[in-house]
Deep mutational scan, measured.
Amino acid sequence: ETEYTFDDKREADRAAKEAQNNGLRVHVTKDGNRWKVRID
């Protein structure tokens, strides 16, 4: 399990989409004014 934090939602969405394309499970959550992408 890996977690990334992004300031920009577009960057978070791009990272999530890339991980999904690689067959990974992805969870995107909002943390204040930042975005967390957790990859299982």
Rank of each mutant, 00 (worst) to 15 (best):
D8H: 09
V26W: 03
A19S: 03
A15F: 15
L24Q: 07
T5I: 14
V26Y: 03
T2A: 11
R34V: 13
A12G: 01
V37E: 01
N21E: 13
N21G: 10
A19R: 02
T2G: 11
A15D: 01
E18P: 01
V28E: 01
T2H: 12
G23C: 08
H27E: 12
L24M: 10
R34P: 00
E11Q: 10
E3Y: 12
N22D: 06
T29W: 15
T5E: 09
Q20E: 12
D40L: 15
V37D: 02
F6D: 00
D31L: 07
I39R: 00
R14N: 09
R38E: 08
W35C: 00
L24G: 04
D31M: 07
K17C: 10
L24E: 03
R38I: 15
Q20M: 14
R10H: 12
K36G: 03
E1V: 15
A15T: 08
R34E: 08
G23R: 03
Q20F: 10
R38W: 14
V26R: 00
R14A: 13
Y4N: 04
W35L: 00
T29A: 07
D8S: 15
D8Q: 06
R34S: 10
F6I: 02
I39L: 06
R25N: 10
E11N: 06
E11K: 07
F6Q: 01
R34L: 11
T5N: 06
E11H: 07
K17Y: 10
R38Y: 13
K9L: 07
R25A: 08
A12V: 03
D7E: 11
A19G: 03
K30N: 07
K9N: 03
L24W: 12
D31T: 06
E18W: 14
G23M: 03
A16N: 02
A16C: 09
V26G: 03
R34F: 11
A15L: 14
E18N: 09
K17A: 14
Y4M: 12
E11A: 11
R10G: 12
L24R: 06
G32V: 02
D13R: 06
N33R: 06
K17M: 13
R38S: 12
V28A: 01
W35F: 04
H27V: 14
N21Q: 13
K36W: 05
N33F: 06
E11T: 08
A16L: 05
F6P: 01
E1N: 12
H27G: 04
D7A: 10
N33T: 08
F6W: 02
V37S: 00
A15H: 08
T29C: 09
D8W: 05
H27L: 10
H27S: 13
K9M: 06
A16R: 04
T2D: 08
Y4P: 03
K30L: 08
Q20H: 09
D8F: 07
A15S: 04
D7P: 05
R25V: 12
I39A: 03
A12W: 00
D13F: 15
F6M: 02
T5K: 04
V37C: 03
V26S: 05
N33H: 10
A12L: 02
E11G: 06
A15W: 15
R25E: 07
F6E: 01
A15M: 14
N33I: 06
D7F: 11
R25W: 07
V28G: 00
D31G: 02
G23K: 03
T29E: 13
D8M: 05
E18T: 09
K17I: 11
T29G: 05
E18I: 13
V26C: 03
K30Y: 14
A15E: 03
V37P: 01
D40S: 14
W35R: 00
K17L: 13
G32L: 03
E11S: 12
G32N: 05
V28P: 01
N33Q: 08
K30F: 15
E11R: 05
E3C: 12
T5F: 15
K36T: 10
W35M: 00
T2N: 09
V28R: 02
R34K: 13
W35P: 01
K9T: 02
D31P: 00
N21D: 13
A19P: 01
N22I: 10
W35D: 01
H27I: 14
W35Q: 00
A16M: 07
A12P: 01
G23F: 03
N22F: 05
T29K: 06
V28T: 04
K36R: 11
D13P: 00
W35N: 00
D31W: 06
R14D: 08
H27T: 15
F6C: 04
K17S: 09
N21R: 13
Q20G: 06
E11Y: 05
E1L: 14
N33G: 10
T5G: 04
V26F: 04
D13A: 08
E3P: 04
D7T: 12
T29Q: 10
D31N: 05
D13K: 06
E1S: 14
A12M: 02
R14P: 02
G23E: 02
E11M: 09
N33L: 07
G32R: 03
D13L: 15
I39G: 02
D31C: 07
E3A: 07
L24C: 07
A16Y: 05
H27D: 06
I39T: 05
K30G: 04
Q20T: 12
R34T: 10
K30V: 06
D8A: 05
A16S: 05
N21K: 13
R38Q: 11
V37W: 00
E1M: 15
R14G: 04
T2V: 14
H27A: 08
V28F: 03
G23D: 02
V26M: 02
V37N: 01
A12N: 00
Y4D: 03
A15V: 15
R25I: 11
G23N: 05
R25Q: 08
